[in-house]
Design a protein around this nucleic acid. Structure first.
Lengths: 204, 204
DNA sequence: CAAAATATAGAACGTATGTTCTACTTACAG
DNA sequence: CTGTAAGTAGAACATACGTTCTATATTTTG
């Protein structure tokens, strides 16, 4: 999915929120009012951009004729699946979201959360398999022994977290993979996105 | 909630379907077209009736200004958690249901399904931990190697399923536990409830 | 640097859409 | 039988709403 400018993101977010609140999309004039646009064409322009990039569908001539893809209709309660994290963007930026899990956020008692799909066997000893979705509660702190989602080179990785004096150790739950060790001074080369709050496996 | 006449039911159903398809409600004229009404007032009248009975909310003056209650936007169907199965009762009898998981049944592609909470470590080698919820697709057949939920002495148990000639073997995924072997003539002492369709772990 | 994408403003136009009024039919309960 | 609710029809009206054209400024990109 093509990248969105920050204004386009804001407009899409507003469409989703408005839809969730009222059950129907806003008119172009309501869009203008909300953002303070003084011209109808400004709002109309953003809608056309969003449609060109495939985020919405416009039904010409129909009042409030904006269709959001089903995944984005009531997303506020569903858990977003985050794929690659584009540099600089916040975790939950729309561009990072691949899909939504049909699970209410409240189920895992974590309003601020997302999911990542596990690739590979680096966490099998924690009983986390290839293909599992791990639900991550967003926070930048972690305790020793927590399973954390860390961002290393735009890539989301799951590891056990251990801090000792001047260094942080990120360990796999599989002896095949060596631990990653970060000294305090190079702590900026990775970032903790959150800690594991649950797991979902879709498998026969 | 007050009862609906059959026409009113049909109109409400149409509102829900239209909403699900397009992401916005129909106009009064679209309602007329669908039902073959020749007067706008007919459709308008039904909408007013539905609002008076509390099924929808009308926003006067707004195009497509119909709000369905959130519950009716996307029907929610949660997965029941089954505990002990009382003798003689069907699996999904209300008496057997301990709780519901806030997960839509469709998520695991199994309309007929339930969940059991795992107790113990008999399936750890299949990466199923103590406390995990395993989603079971209801069916009475199983293939060799499937993980099945079986009813043994009113107790729901998870096992690997193997059939060989005149006997059925139910194996744990943990060498600590010996396999259960049933000869064909004693096959009535257990019952297959269904096969594993997914897993949910709620854990920090 | 030039071209393209992004962002915004203002105005004019036509039609899509909700509202309301009158009127008629059928079924049903008091 | 008479009143009330459900269901339908037709028409007139006001306005909510999308569309399109012209212009301008800023930022990004090749």
């Amino acid at each position: 999915m093509e990248n969105l400018s920050s204004k386009q993101s804001q407009v899409l977010r507003f469409l989703m929120d408005f839809n969730a609140d009222y059950g129907f999309p806003p008119t172009i004039r309501e869009l203008c009012d909300h953002f303070g646009f003084k011209s109808l064409n400004t709002a109309h322009f953003h809608l056309r951009s969003l449609e060109k990039k495939g985020y919405i569908q416009i039904h010409p001539g129909k009042g409030r004729g904006i269709t959001l893809p089903e995944a984005r209709r009531l997303p506020e309660r569903k858990i977003p699946v985050v794929g690659r994290i584009a540099a600089g963007l916040p975790i939950l930026a729309l561009e990072n979201i691949e899909d939504f899990l049909g699970i209410d956020k409240g189920f895992f008692c974590t309003e601020k959360s997302f999911a990542v799909q596990v690739k590979g066997d680096s966490m099998v000893d924690a009983h986390i398999q290839d293909g599992d979705y791990v639900i991550i509660k967003i926070q930048d702190q972690a305790q020793n022994g927590d399973i954390v989602a860390a961002l290393i080179d735009d890539e989301v990785t799951l590891k056990y977290f251990y801090r000792r004096k001047r260094q942080i150790r990120l360990e796999s739950a599989n002896p095949k993979y060596p631990p990653l060790i970060f000294k305090k001074e190079e702590a900026r080369s990775f970032r903790i996105l959150g800690i594991m709050a649950g797991l979902v496996r879709k498998r026969q």
